[in-house]
Design a protein around this nucleic acid. Structure first.
Length: 291
DNA sequence: ATCTGTCCCTGGACGC
DNA sequence: TGCGTCCAGGGACAGA
């Protein structure tokens, strides 16, 4: 699922294809939970505006426009942002996939899950936003307007410090795993990298946050940054739906230590990786390396 | 203020 | 083969 590294890879690869372009036409599906700004408003308001920057806040992508409005995009669980012309089996429904001969890769064609398409005036490849489960979000922020989702974000996980995590953990009775997933504490951390960081820091995900030492917090933040930077380097994690903007898979899923490795041996000690549920989220850890 | 549980959505896995 | 059931999970929200 798209977390900070996947969103950052998307941003880096999309920016050169978006910044400086002027939106010409907007195509959407019908109004739904996905559209925080109604499709009709996007279609009316966006054409003619030029994208001047593409930046990231936590897991949110923000396209800055030349009238100081901003288009906020969130990939949710299954969101995919990619360029016209991309090919990937992950971009196709299972029926479309099975009708393909193995040697043939069809270029992506807009389907019922493709909720937003931006076309540009200079004929450059259009941008597609596809999201099967519709947990993603699109919101147009007019100049000077903000949104609670953004206002609530804590410090970006890549620039956070152990001391910030330590301060935020005081008097908190929740599990450390839940604290790491709290976007108002560290923005950008999701289920995969929380589990990976807890493993590398040797911290049991169930440990009450208030029982973390300053040293634990330093180790957790260092581990988070290590796995996230490495994931960005390898193009993110393609475990279920994530693809980069050109349709290519990431590589970090092949390097992960514990996430979705239930019952497989720990790569450090050989113990069997355990899966439990914390706050309705599946959580993976090594019972022997993490205390 | 903090915490927990519920809900949104759809496709894939699994059992019969 | 085909159907029903369960599960995945980011984040907003309600209620304790």
């Amino acid at each position: 699922m798209p977390e900070l590294p996947e969103v950052e890879v998307t941003r880096r690869r999309l920016a050169p294809r978006m910044v400086g372009r002027t939106v010409q036409r907007v195509v959407t599906t019908t109004d739904s939970y996905f559209f925080l700004t109604k499709p009709a408003v996007l279609k009316r308001q966006l054409p003619g505006r030029q994208i001047t920057d593409l930046f990231r806040l936590g897991k949110y992508l923000l396209a800055e426009l030349n009238d100081s409005s901003r288009l906020m995009l969130h990939l949710g669980m299954t969101g995919q942002l990619f360029l016209a012309g991309s090919t990937s089996p992950r971009l196709l429904s299972s029926t479309a996939r099975s009708s393909l001969s193995p040697t043939r890769q069809l270029k992506f064609k807009r389907d019922t899950h493709t909720h937003l398409m931006l076309e540009f005036s200079d004929g450059d490849p259009a941008i597609f936003f596809r999201d099967v489960r519709k947990f993603g979000k699109v919101l147009l922020l007019e100049p000077g307007r903000s949104d609670r989702r953004l206002d609530r974000l804590g410090v970006d996980a890549l620039s956070s410090t152990g001391d910030q995590l330590f301060q935020a953990s005081r008097k908190r009775s929740i599990a450390t795993k839940s604290l790491l997933l709290d976007q108002s504490v560290l923005a950008g951390v999701g289920n995969i990298y929380a589990d990976e960081a807890l493993y590398l820091a040797g911290v049991r995900p169930t440990r009450r946050a208030a029982r973390l030492s300053r040293r634990d917090c330093d180790a957790l933040v260092a581990a988070l940054q290590r796995v996230m930077l490495r994931s960005i380097e390898t193009g993110g994690s393609s475990i279920s739906d994530y693809v980069a903007p050109d349709g290519s898979d990431g590589g970090y899923q092949d390097e992960r230590w514990v996430y979705a490795r239930t019952k497989m041996p720990c790569q450090k000690c050989g113990a069997s990786i355990r899966r439990i549920v914390i706050g309705q989220r599946s959580t993976h850890y090594c019972p022997s390396c993490q205390r």
